[in-house]
Nucleic acid binder design. Structure first.
Length: 509
RNA sequence: CGGAGUAUAGCGCAGCCUGGUAGCGCACCUGCUUCGGGAGCAGGGGGUCGAGUGUUCGAAUCACUCUACUCCGACCA
């Protein structure tokens, strides 16, 4: 108690009490001191204590104190909807050609996407690590790619005039890590992945983060003793990818793809269908509604049936087929010619890197065997615009709940009105308490601007609180996607939102 | 890398042709009135006109050079 008194005394002396009262800092300090003193409450703050505990859960997301630079007009450099909307919604800022800063709202979405990717990679048995962005050229000289890669690779010289590079991909580094530590076939299979920034000095970056020079990539690398088990590793990633894109509210259609200079015939690209996609794609439309492998899929079992099931239906990019071939292969009633955004690419390439880099393990017969490898990429910084391309309207973005920067926004229509302030604060706190990722729009501005902002940034549910409804004890929920509005009592609102939101998180599908 | 274009306040633009020292809308700041779909009134702040060189008494404006960015094509998670 003495300590608390001293603390409050200091605050009084510095004259900062009124300011501190408005922040979370002071109650948490009080509580810490109270606990330190073995008390269950702070004598000084006893009034309204319960409310203060609530506020301590999670960061405060009050729009009046957030950093969300919205643009009313569309910057002229943006051509496609996703790029325009990401700029207008204050998600990104261009810093140079193909180089973007991720502002808080954009970063929040990016992180949700990365989290889903990590969960599904982990579920499939892959193990996360982190490799550097700047690599030594030596490994690339060893694999033969230092000269082969061309100007797309950003080459750097350090102070000792050593050749370095900003990694465009990580096969060399992961192979080096593997060969250093893994010596026995008993340690296989192994799949290591990371989520790390890449740089490819594209001739022409465009469409915002859809094709940027610096981009985030999840890249996984599998190592197996023989081709048969390597193919199983490939299937595991195939299934993980189906699940990953589905959880983001996307249909990621696997398509036979060109392996390019890597060779071999095991390569699939995952495409999100969108009018602005860069590739022409041809597919059997039954793939679009095909149920994805469920959460209890056993990744230690033989996944061949799932792979065969999915790949039995026709799907290919224009690199692999043409309209004539497509029409000959698919029943007319199932034909779908569309455009696609490539959001993932999986390769099996055998010993392409293990051979020149001498990545071998000792097999059961005591002989050294070059490991069979595959690599598997997903671009989170491309997924953000891909999701927007697939889901937006005239008013702005329509986020699927699973990747939405906020699941719900409480819109206080009349800031300064005692009833409206109190009810919206309370509803916001209750949503947080129920584990909903909520935002409170407590900015002192007109209702129209708030509705427009909520629509633009695409929050799935708007909880509209204003004096008019409160007179009847009512609030309104607007569904961003359908435009549907429902009026309900203040008491029912949080429960209703929770029942709407939780199933759409897709974290248990 | 081939072709085309743009550069004037944070964003969107006018002014350039015909040279005379920069303007509009939004945003921002102050005050008042407002507040259920991007409010109104009044006042205010902010610009080496992408950079450099040249022509000229005088350059955002004319000429040349450079740079950055965007679009179309070939390449890519």
């Amino acid at each position: 108690m003495a300590a608390i008194a001293i603390l409050h005394g200091l605050e009084s002396i510095t004259g900062r009490v009124p300011k501190l009262r408005k922040t979370a800092a002071r109650p948490s300090v009080c509580l810490s001191f109270a606990r330190f003193c073995g008390l269950h409450f702070c004598a000084h703050c006893a009034i309204g204590f319960a409310n203060r505990i609530r506020r301590h859960r999670g960061p405060s997301m009050r729009l009046s104190r957030y950093f969300l630079p919205l643009l009313k007009e569309t910057p002229k450099e943006a051509e496609i909807a996703s790029h325009q909307l990401m700029l207008r919604a204050g998600m990104i800022k261009q810093q140079a050609a193909g180089s973007y800063a991720w502002l808080p709202l954009g970063f929040k979405v990016l992180n949700k996407i990365v989290k889903i990717i990590e969960e599904e990679q982990n579920r499939s048995g892959a193990i996360q690590l982190l490799m550097p962005t700047i690599q030594s050229a030596d490994l690339w000289k060893e694999s033969g790619r230092y000269n082969a890669y061309g100007k797309e690779m950003l080459r750097i010289e350090d102070r000792h005039e050593r050749d370095m590079l900003f990694g465009p991909t990580n096969e060399e580094v992961i192979t080096d890590i593997f060969r250093t530590y893994v010596k026995s076939y008993k340690d296989l299979p192994l799949n290591l992945y990371h989520v790390q920034w890449k740089f490819r000095d594209e001739v022409r970056p465009r469409f915002g983060t859809m094709r940027s020079r610096e981009f985030l990539m999840k890249d996984a690398y599998s190592f197996d003793l023989d081709e048969a088990s390597a193919i199983q590793a490939f299937y595991r990633m195939f299934v993980a990818y189906l699940r990953t894109f589905h959880r983001m509210g996307l249909v990621g259609v696997p398509m036979r793809a060109d392996t390019g200079p890597i060779g071999g015939d095991m390569s699939y690209e995952f495409h999100v269908l969108a009018d602005t996609g860069e590739s022409a794609v041809f597919l059997d439309k039954r793939l679009v509604d095909k149920p994805i492998p469920e959460i209890d899929t056993d990744f230690r079992s033989d996944l061949t049936p799932i792979f065969k099931d999915w790949t039995s239906l026709f799907a290919a990019t224009d690199e692999m087929t043409d309209e004539a071939g497509f029409k000959a292969a698919v029943d007319p009633e199932h034909q779908l010619a569309a455009r696609g955004i490539e959001v993932g690419h999986i390769f099996f390439f055998g010993t392409t890197y293990s051979k020149p880099m001498k990545a071998t393990v000792t097999g059961p017969d005591g002989q050294a065997v070059e490991v069979q490898m595959g690599s598997y990429g997903i671009g989170p910084t491309r997924l953000v615009p891909a999701i927007i391309e697939a889901s937006h309207d005239e008013a702005g973005i329509i986020w699927p709940v699973s990747v939405a920067p906020f699941e719900a926004v409480v819109i206080n229509l009349k800031v300064g009105d005692a009833e409206s302030d109190k009810a919206s604060e309370r509803l916001y706190e209750d949503l947080k308490l129920e584990g909903i990722d909520a935002l409170l729009d407590d900015r002192d501005q007109g209702a129209g601007g708030k509705f427009a902002a909520a629509d633009l940034i695409g929050i799935p549910y708007q909880l509209i609180v204003g004096p008019r409804g409160l007179k009847e004890g009512q609030v309104e929920i607007k569904h961003r996607k359908s435009g549907e509005r429902e009026t309900l009592s203040v008491e029912e609102a949080v429960g209703r939102l929770k029942r709407l939101i939780v199933p759409q998180r897709r974290d248990s599908v």
